[in-house]
């Protein structure tokens, strides 16, 4: 089952980036820790229901700006910090939403497997995040060729 959750989060991320950000992203090997030099940003969505947990996307501020520019079809230099945070929030929301739909299909569930919270965004230079959960934790690393970003899933059945 754990392997399936891992695969689901990878498939979900590649699908959301292709359809909403118009970017092809490729999974690369996760080397045991999130390593983003300089200013970076994290958007997290909590969820609760039959399963509870969170999904998070971690990337550099430059890559978040590229996501915003692509989603909003705007020149990245014209985006405000709020635009960038909103775009990354929206991506984290869509990753959680798509994951929910795929998980429900995989489990053949008739009811919603969870409901989502609003995203919280953390932005800064020197910080780390820890999900407090007594259950497995999944990380996936992705590359667009130039940029690397990470998606995290922490989840347990209630």
């Amino acid at each position: 089952m754990e392997k399936h959750f891992s695969e689901l989060i990878v498939n979900t991320t590649t699908t959301v980036f292709k359809s909403m950000v118009f970017m092809d992203v490729k999974e690369i090997e996760f080397e045991g820790k999130i390593d983003i030099p300089g200013k970076h940003v994290t958007a997290m969505v909590g969820f609760a229901g039959v399963y509870m947990g969170l999904t998070a996307i971690h990337c550099s501020i430059e890559f978040a700006r590229k996501i915003g520019a692509s989603m909003l079809q705007m020149d990245s230099s014209k985006l405000t910090n709020e635009d960038v945070r909103d775009a990354l929030s929206e991506i984290s929301n869509m990753i959680a939403g798509h994951f929910k739909a795929e998980l429900a299909k995989m489990l053949d569930a008739e009811q919603q497997v969870f409901e989502q919270s609003v995203p919280s965004v953390i932005s800064g230079e020197d910080y780390e995040t820890h999900a407090i959960i007594d259950a497995p934790h999944y990380y996936a690393a992705f590359s667009t060729g130039k940029d690397i970003f990470y998606v995290e899933l922490a989840m347990k059945k209630v």
């Binding site: 409901e115 965004v121 407090i132």
Partner: peptide, 23 residues
Amino acid sequence: VFKMSIPSVIQGIEYNIFAPADS
């Protein structure tokens, strides 16, 4: 009214947390 997800803890220097403007 709602269910609660799991806690997440951030630790560091020079970071800020933001909520969506409409919430």
